[in-house]
């Protein structure tokens, strides 16, 4: 007799727990509109805004006069754990003072090797490089991921020491 009672109690208990779980599912089924958190990604591209600090790609900031703040000190190159940054610098005579000054020739950035660890950004003494929150950089050719960050004809800003 006892065994039969246990048998049925187990069955009712099982049904009860299954219904408890089903109630949770049912709640979300009936409140689907309120609870949706997913985004339709390629469609919402225009309104999608990443967080300011999001690390997407390293950029060298240029102002409207096509001037940047990079002195070519190679601090970022040393800080980088993967050899992502290569700086080719040149020594040019300053026409005003006559002293030789170091300027960057090419700021080469291998995006394919970058782990976006932000160590180069925090090591930069002049805040010349920044992390940009853009993220759509897939290409068909790996060569496209090696970029020269300083724009052609760009110069170092006058006030940067």
């Amino acid at each position: 007799m006892n065994a039969i009672r246990t048998y049925f109690r187990d069955i009712f208990h099982a049904i009860k727990t299954l219904l408890t779980g089903m109630r949770v599912t049912g709640y979300y089924f009936s409140h689907a509109r309120k609870e949706i958190i997913t985004q339709q990604y390629p469609e919402n591209r225009d309104t999608l805004k990443m967080f300011d600090r999001f690390r997407g790609i390293v950029t060298l900031e240029h102002d409207e006069n096509n001037e940047h703040a990079c002195t070519g000190c190679s601090a970022c190159e040393i800080a980088c754990p993967n050899g992502t940054i290569e700086i080719v610098s040149d020594r040019v005579e300053d026409p005003e003072t006559g002293k030789k000054k170091k300027i960057i020739d090419k700021f080469i950035y291998h995006y394919s090797m970058c782990t976006l660890c932000n160590l180069c950004i925090i090591s930069c003494p002049t805040d010349a490089i920044k992390m940009d929150p853009s993220f759509e950089y897939s290409t068909f050719d790996r060569k496209d991921l090696t970029m020269i960050l300083n724009k052609p004809g760009s110069q170092i800003r006058k006030d940067v020491k």
Binding site: F51, R53, F54, R55, N118, M131
Partner: peptide, 24 residues
């Protein structure tokens, strides 16, 4: 993940701690 992304700049590979403190 949103909290991490906003404060640290990444969702998974955050690299937020640095020796002697935190990055931001």
């Amino acid at each position: 993940n949103d909290i991490f992304e906003e404060t640290c700049g990444a969702r998974l590979t955050v690299n937020y701690n640095v020796p002697g403190g935190v990055m931001f």
